[in-house]
């Protein structure tokens, strides 16, 4: 008894007249209060949570990325340069020092 009387009141408040429309909506909302509302709440919660998650991952990625750029990238570049220089030097030593090296042991002996 209480539910039908409360439902038109609610519909009237929500749609302000428009009987057929209100009734239709009313019927849907009575059964759907629990379902659509729940779904909507769940959806908005998920949206908010995922937004937060996305934002914090973005921030973490930003911090990690800038830290990497400042601390590690120069190190990699410089070590690569050093390695290149060592390689070049050993190559040069190979070119210049190759003839004396096999020749030197007989010279010592």
């Amino acid at each position: 008894m209480v539910a039908p009387s409360a439902a038109p009141q609610k519909a009237g408040a929500g749609a302000s007249g428009g009987k057929g429309w209100g009734r239709g909506m009313n019927f849907g909302s009575v059964t759907g209060t629990s379902l659509t509302d729940k779904a909507r709440r769940a959806a908005s919660n998920t949206a908010r949570f995922s937004q937060k998650l996305l934002w914090s991952t973005g921030k973490a990625a930003w911090i990690a990325g800038t830290t990497f750029l400042i601390l590690v990238v120069p190190l990699i570049i410089e070590m690569d340069r050093e390695q290149q220089m060592v390689d070049m030097e050993s190559q040069q030593a190979g070119l210049l020092g190759a003839p004396p090296l096999p020749g030197s042991p007989p010279a010592v002996k």
Binding site: T67, L71, P74, L75, M79, R81, E82, M85
Partner: peptide, 13 residues
């Protein structure tokens, strides 16, 4: 603290 032939690189966290 890396002391290479052409450079010196220091990093801190």
């Amino acid at each position: 603290d890396y002391l290479l032939r052409q450079c010196r690189l220091r990093g801190r966290l």
